[in-house]
Amino acid sequence: MQSSRLPEMERYTRHVLVCTGNFCGENRAGRAIYARLASLLQREGLLFGATRVKRSEAPCLGVCTGGPIVAVYPEGVWYAGVTFELLERIVLEHLKDGRVIEEAVFHRMTAE
């Protein structure tokens, strides 16, 4: 018998999408970035609670070059060529402190 209760989603402050597809980054580098993201979020206390950051992997974000690609919402900021070093900065500066790393941004979603 199916429950009539609706699912519940724990609140989160940001949602990070990581392209893990084969085309935008060599040697499936996006998968390594996605895996490292979890450990960095945990280390910085961003996996649970009021400052929770949700992470998702996407097989394709439609860029298909310059990867690994990481997109951060609700800001709609997209980073290209994400290395472990840049990911560390994204977690510390953008996700934790709210400062976008402007020199690494290649795309922004804007209201039209």
Score class of each variant (00 low, 15 high):
residue 79 Y to R: 12
residue 36 R to T: 10
residue 112 E to L: 10
residue 82 V to W: 06
residue 65 T to I: 03
residue 33 I to C: 07
residue 33 I to F: 02
residue 50 A to W: 00
residue 58 A to T: 11
residue 98 G to T: 08
residue 33 I to N: 03
residue 7 P to S: 11
residue 97 D to C: 05
residue 14 R to W: 00
residue 29 A to S: 14
residue 29 A to H: 13
residue 14 R to F: 01
residue 53 V to F: 05
residue 50 A to R: 15
residue 90 I to V: 13
residue 75 E to H: 03
residue 106 F to V: 06
residue 102 E to G: 01
residue 69 I to Y: 05
residue 75 E to F: 01
residue 95 L to M: 07
residue 74 P to W: 13
residue 109 M to V: 13
residue 19 C to A: 09
residue 112 E to N: 09
residue 38 A to T: 11
residue 103 E to Q: 14
residue 90 I to M: 09
residue 37 L to H: 03
residue 28 R to A: 09
residue 85 E to I: 00
residue 87 L to G: 09
residue 94 H to K: 07
residue 10 E to P: 01
residue 104 A to R: 13
residue 111 A to W: 09
residue 103 E to R: 15
residue 45 G to S: 13
residue 18 V to W: 09
residue 14 R to N: 12
residue 10 E to S: 09
residue 111 A to F: 05
residue 38 A to C: 00
residue 31 R to W: 03
residue 28 R to F: 05
residue 32 A to Q: 15
residue 4 S to A: 12
residue 85 E to G: 10
residue 19 C to K: 11
residue 109 M to D: 03
residue 42 Q to M: 10
residue 58 A to H: 08
residue 78 W to P: 02
residue 62 G to Q: 09
residue 85 E to F: 00
residue 51 T to S: 13
residue 23 F to R: 15
residue 9 M to V: 14
residue 106 F to C: 07
residue 37 L to N: 06
residue 28 R to H: 13
residue 12 Y to M: 08
residue 80 A to N: 13
residue 71 A to V: 11
residue 33 I to H: 04
residue 31 R to T: 07
residue 29 A to Q: 15
residue 67 G to D: 06
residue 8 E to Q: 13
residue 35 A to T: 09
residue 34 Y to M: 10
residue 59 P to C: 05
residue 58 A to M: 12
residue 75 E to T: 06
residue 35 A to D: 12
residue 111 A to R: 15
residue 36 R to V: 00
residue 55 R to A: 12
residue 31 R to Q: 14
residue 88 E to K: 14
residue 11 R to C: 01
residue 112 E to V: 09
residue 16 V to T: 11
residue 15 H to P: 01
residue 48 F to I: 08
residue 39 S to Y: 07
